[in-house]
Design a binder for these strands. Structure first.
Lengths: 353, 353
DNA sequence: CCAGATATACTCAATTTGAGCATATCGAAT
DNA sequence: ATTCGATATGCTCAAATTGAGTATATCTGG
């Protein structure tokens, strides 16, 4: 089953449609559709990237997995999609969002756990929101969870996670050699290669932006809980499969994966880090924040040279003394860069050696 | 009126929502919603970037503006969103799409020209498709139009377009000093600054990726036809306003603007140019293609060094002789780069001097 | 006062990038 | 046949950027 999101980067084999003559569009057979707005709200608590999760925004039906704040788009109430999102988030968590950005619209059937067949098909739009921890303290409901709780294999802060070679690698290789189905010919990259590229195995290098591709691959391979929840008939051998990260409701883990991918990519070419920082900060704190998101992306004092020469920050004149060593200058974000250069960001690179 | 898409890059002032206690989600007041799938299909004919337009896919109601191929998402027929898109495109134009990528989901009211209030609210999802010109020749309906036909101010191939200083600049400055409304305080960038950054006026530099921001600004300022079509009540003085590019139906010009933005951005970090090229090509043809999309982005023979050293291409061994000068080596795309490096692309830069 | 920790300044070489020169080969005009 | 215009392609060279390291300053805690 081809996941839709992977089409962002790969060809998909075109559907072999008969070439009908162009017809006038009919409005028949449009089954009811509901639009779900889902928010991945990201903050940082002590160098830990966290996401806001809620548990009980629907009647508790025994399922206790975490979920993201979400709600249906009501076009009569919400003038725009993101007003709708802000309204739902405020209502469910008490948080007024600042920075909000649309991620992706998912529409494939069978990824949203429809209780009844008569329920409307849900198309879900994922959003990324960034917030500071002081604003984040206001929340009235929901809880902050490390995003690595849901994606342990993405946590490279202490080096390569063991789960990669201990569990994920072997199970994926096993899956790669299993039944491929007849449609495997059309696929541009075969399973082996996709695994290699996604998870940086066999000499390929790890790309911290491929969060979504990795999750979709694990889903496709049936290695995450959601895959079995969505298609119980394929649950063979699920019992002995170890849990790979905590599951989420509906397709929320996919939305979160998209959010992480986006943050990791965007931090490099737009000054979004500062949405997560307090007004004043030291350069080391800034670096720690970037590393919390990207992983310890081998930088050094070059990092300070980078942000200073890029004009991203300016000294406040104050010092921070409780630093454990020599006092550090405090800096603030230079909002003027937005008026100067087209694409400023903390453009860290993979590293030469 | 804040355009929704501009939220990709700017803060928006949070809606001041009362903090209600989290409630169980109700399914009341969900007015019917229809999802429109819209395809901006881009190709290249003789160094001219073109987009596939259709005219008569709905009952002709006198309006004869161009539109993009589109159709409603029918969840019972279309397993995924992009299968739906491919189906509609095939039906309306006879073209089987190859590379397809989702762009953005627009949902704001009043941008989609609802004939009757009783009609369902339409949320439209924009897609970008890239195709080669030989495949593009197959089309049975619709016509290819230069994308600069709709966005003349984006055409920098012969230097800075006169329309910028002759028309757009003055009219925008006039609008900037007009009535700002009471909500202008909360706006992070005022009109002057937005104009400056979007259109590279007053010393700011032109950013070829800001296609959508520019169009949204013109829409907001009432300088494009669609603005008056959507809100006839504000049509004061529209008669004497010169036409800024050809209008499109519904919000299709916005979708096209998003598509151009995306192509221009993506060509720099993913090998998407090759979706537009024939199998074999000379390096100069490749450069011309890039320039047709980005504008003459001051490169030189450094371009060849770039693509060759990046391993993006490999020589076929053949030569192209009818080149007007010394015969050129033919190259083909090295598909293997996808397996080697994480983000290869024709990463041209603005230029130092 | 010292050890440990962090902050900050500065250096230096490898690499990348911007810009230009020189030469090769074709077609068309003279 | 020769010349000119146009393109192709190889090579050089200096400027800028980047990766990596060294040296020194100043705090906290023992």
């Amino acid at each position: 089953m081809t996941s839709e999101a992977s089409l962002q980067n790969f060809h998909s084999s075109p559907t072999t449609t008969k070439h009908k003559k162009p017809t006038t569009m009919s409005r028949v057979d449009t089954a009811p559709v509901e639009i779900g707005l889902n928010a991945a709200i990201v903050a940082l608590t002590r160098d830990e990237p966290v996401v806001l999760t809620v548990r009980d925004n629907e009647t508790s039906d025994g399922e206790m997995a975490d979920g993201l704040p979400y709600g249906p788009f009501a076009p009569l109430e919400h003038r725009t999609l993101d007003i709708g999102l802000r309204t739902w988030v405020a209502e469910q968590t008490g948080l007024d969002l600042g920075y909000v950005e649309q991620l992706y619209t998912f529409g494939d059937r069978g990824r949203h756990a429809q209780p009844r067949d008569s329920d409307p098909h849900v198309v879900s739009i994922g959003y990324l929101a960034l917030t500071r921890i002081d604003a984040a303290a206001e929340i009235q409901s929901g809880s902050w969870r490390s995003w690595y709780h849901f994606f342990p294999w993405e946590d490279w802060r202490k080096g390569r996670p063991e789960i990669l070679d201990a569990t994920i690698g072997p199970r994926l290789k096993e899956w790669a050699t299993k039944d491929q189905g007849p449609s495997s010919q059309a696929r541009p990259l075969d399973r082996q290669q996709r695994i290699r590229m996604c998870f940086g195995l066999d000499g390929a290098q790890w790309d911290e932006e491929k969060v979504l591709e990795r999750f979709e691959l694990l889903y496709e391979a049936g290695l995450v809980e959601e895959a079995h929840r969505d298609r119980p008939e394929t649950a063979g051998g699920w019992g002995e499969t170890p849990k790979l990260g905590a599951a989420m409701r509906y397709d929320h883990r996919r939305v979160l994966a998209t959010a992480i991918s986006r943050v990791r990519a965007k931090i490099k070419y737009r000054p979004v880090v500062f949405e997560l920082m307090p007004d004043d900060f030291t350069l080391y704190e800034l670096q720690k924040t970037v590393e919390a998101i990207l992983g310890p992306h081998l930088h050094k004092q070059n990092f300070r040279r980078l942000v200073e020469s890029a004009g991203l920050v300016e000294p406040t004149g104050e010092m921070k003394t409780r630093t454990g060593g020599r006092p550090a200058k405090l800096f603030r974000f230079r909002r003027d860069v937005l008026l100067e250069r087209p694409a400023p960001g903390v453009r860290v690179k993979p590293g030469r050696s």
